[in-house]
Design a protein around this nucleic acid. Structure first.
Lengths: 249, 249
DNA sequence: GTCAGATAGCTGGCATTACCATTTGAAGGA
DNA sequence: TCCTTCAAATGGTAATGCCAGCTATCTGAC
């Protein structure tokens, strides 16, 4: 299912999923190769191949005779700095993609505008997967329209961080629940600016787009912190309720 | 020798060396696994492990039933796209570092301004190594001043490409010969804008800085092309001079 | 004679088994 | 109590066998 062709790739995905799910905590040890082989119904060489692939990705570290350990994700396990906050990422995106939009406005062709319009329609889809993909396509096309491969690469890198940094990814997941029509409208403003070949307007539209995202992030963040405080107070109340002293009175 | 512990790592290094040595040309096919096993005196599973590691490094691509092919190095074997031109990099730097400068202008502290001033003095040094380093520091400090780790990371990535993409690096080498005082003056404009906490002025100064670099790149590029044409004509002249027909007259 | 289909051989994909080297921890002795 | 020792666990590697997909050649029909 997960493995298209090579079996070991499927195993890599499954192990990665187990790591992300917390079953194999960072710093902890993976089950022995023989056990994993039995668990996934594959041979031990296949497990070894998967582990070697994970090792190449800097996700695990094998110690001969001891075991294979999940690498501490506190640092940058994939070259990305996990300490980057959703706000930092969004600010950077606003600045960089804003300039990209401005440049794209004076470079874009009618054919590329057509592509953007198609993607814009996909964005109305209710399915999160479809919408996510359309969103990525929209911004990706604009990056490509600039005709600057360096810029395109940088923006691709921003998306990579967005998808692969757990904290950032979670934060973005939390705010993508709004109904499609609203966010389609936001992207529409950008599209209109590009259509008019108005670079300043395109930059502004892009800035506003990310400004709205920042706002949503802040609201979500605030809400989350409030809940955390309430949870903590609830725990304290249970712990120090002194009910065990006064209950049987 | 090469393999400290795991055997497959040694094989990876050897195959990589063979690729770099031109024995396995890019786009070409590696010898079959069984042959490699015999060649390096290891078992086939070990060869498979090495190939999987190479695959994870995007150095080879395996096609079931056909063979394993060396990936075209024209793209990014080190994550960097070698096809990025100096102009593209500089344009991207102008856009991104321009925004960074604007943000830095409203974030910078007096202490950070002091650091910049020190670096500015180093820039007067005649030694290319010292000047290069000061230049990198100057832009690096500004990136850090923004307080945005994502932006800092992106700008560091731009420098990485500048230093590691052969074509870009060569182009930049060719234009850094101008006397120090001129380029110090350019950076001084940026510094003054930051000192005044004037974001627009900082952005403009940064843009002008890179605009000048683009101009130099264009002049150098033009000159290089001219020389190439002259060289070619010279060769043609020698080849078709007909001197061998008329010399002994 | 030419083109399409079949076949045989390579090539990688995976499983199985066996044995070796290192690590680790617990048992046993000082 | 501490140190030594040794055995079980775990990864490391080898050898072998068979399967599946691709390729190129060969063969047959048109």
């Amino acid at each position: 299912m997960a493995g298209d062709k090579r079996l070991y790739r499927g195993i890599v995905d499954k192990i990665l999923a187990s790591i992300d799910a917390g079953e194999f905590p960072p710093g902890g040890r993976l089950p022995p190769e023989r056990e994993l082989a039995e668990r996934y119904n594959v041979s031990r060489p296949t497990i070894r191949e998967a582990i070697i692939a994970l090792e190449a990705l800097d996700r695990v570290e094998v110690k001969t005779g001891s075991g294979v350990y999940v690498v501490e994700s506190s640092k940058g396990w994939n070259g990305i700095d996990l300490s980057i906050s959703p706000f930092e990422l969004t600010e950077a995106r606003a600045m960089i993609e804003g300039e990209a939009a401005a440049l794209a406005a004076i470079m874009i062709t009618n054919e590329q505008l057509g592509k953007l319009e198609l993607v814009l329609r996909e964005m109305e889809d209710e399915s999160p997967a479809v919408y996510e993909n359309a969103d990525k396509n929209f911004h990706g096309i604009i990056a490509r329209v600039t005709g600057n491969k360096m810029l395109d690469s940088v923006i691709a890198n921003l998306w990579y961080v967005r998808d692969n940094s757990p904290s950032v990814h979670r934060a973005y997941q939390a705010i993508c629940e709004t109904d499609g029509s609203v966010r389609v409208a936001e992207h529409m403003e950008i599209f209109e600016a590009l259509k008019e070949r108005d670079d300043k307007k395109a930059r502004d539209a892009m800035h506003q787009h990310f400004s709205r995202i920042i706002n949503k992030l802040m609201i979500a963040s605030e809400k989350e912190e409030m809940e955390a405080i309430q949870r903590k107070m609830h725990e304290s109340r249970e712990r120090f309720s002194l009910n065990h002293l006064v209950s049987s009175r």
